[in-house]
Amino acid sequence: MTNDRTQHALAILAAIGTGTVPLDPFTSDARWWWNGGLDLPVAEFAALLATLHTQTESGIVVTPGLIMAQDDSVMIEATSAARLTNGRIYDNRYIFLFHFRGDAICEVREYSDSAHVNATFDLTA
């Protein structure tokens, strides 16, 4: 089961690059928490991501690194890269912590450089 959970988590990170996060791998009450001050239902996070995606030339490429799985959690260290339509470059480092209930994701905790996110993207759009 851990391998399936890891694959679900990796698929979500890959989907970030498309600007669309599928909701079916999540529980109905799943939340996406970000250390920059967000704690949203996953559907609201997906809408925010779609807005951010429009500010990039070709999406945010998230590249996984170290992966650790234990019990009902998968932790993925990752980096990202994107060129924005305003000419800025977005490159960040992350720790994503995926919590599962059964086979579905019930929470994502995203740790990144929030100052870089705020300086690069127009979060008011």
Rank of each mutant, 00 (worst) to 15 (best):
M1C: 06
M1A: 12
T2V: 10
D4G: 01
R5E: 05
T6K: 14
T6I: 15
Q7F: 06
Q7M: 10
H8E: 12
A9W: 03
A9V: 05
A11P: 00
I12M: 12
I12Y: 03
L13G: 01
L13D: 01
A14P: 03
I16P: 03
T18I: 09
T18L: 07
G19D: 03
G19K: 11
T20F: 08
V21F: 00
V21C: 08
P22F: 09
P25Y: 01
P25G: 07
T27F: 02
A30D: 04
R31P: 01
W33E: 08
W34S: 13
W34T: 14
G36S: 05
A43E: 15
A43I: 06
F45N: 09
F45P: 04
A46F: 05
A47R: 13
A47K: 15
L49F: 08
L49T: 01
T51N: 11
Q55W: 03
T56Q: 08
T56G: 01
S58F: 05
V61R: 13
T63H: 03
P64W: 07
P64A: 10
P64N: 12
P64G: 04
G65Q: 09
G65R: 06
Q70Y: 08
D72R: 13
D72F: 05
V74M: 11
V74R: 03
I76M: 03
E77R: 14
A78C: 10
S80F: 00
A81E: 15
A82Y: 05
R83V: 12
R83K: 13
L84R: 03
L84C: 06
T85Y: 00
G87V: 12
R88H: 13
D91Q: 15
D91W: 01
N92D: 07
R93S: 10
F96Q: 03
L97K: 09
F98H: 02
F98W: 04
H99T: 15
R101M: 07
D103Y: 05
C106R: 12
R109I: 10
R109V: 11
Y111C: 09
Y111Q: 07
D113E: 06
S114I: 07
A115R: 14
V117N: 02
N118G: 07
A119V: 05
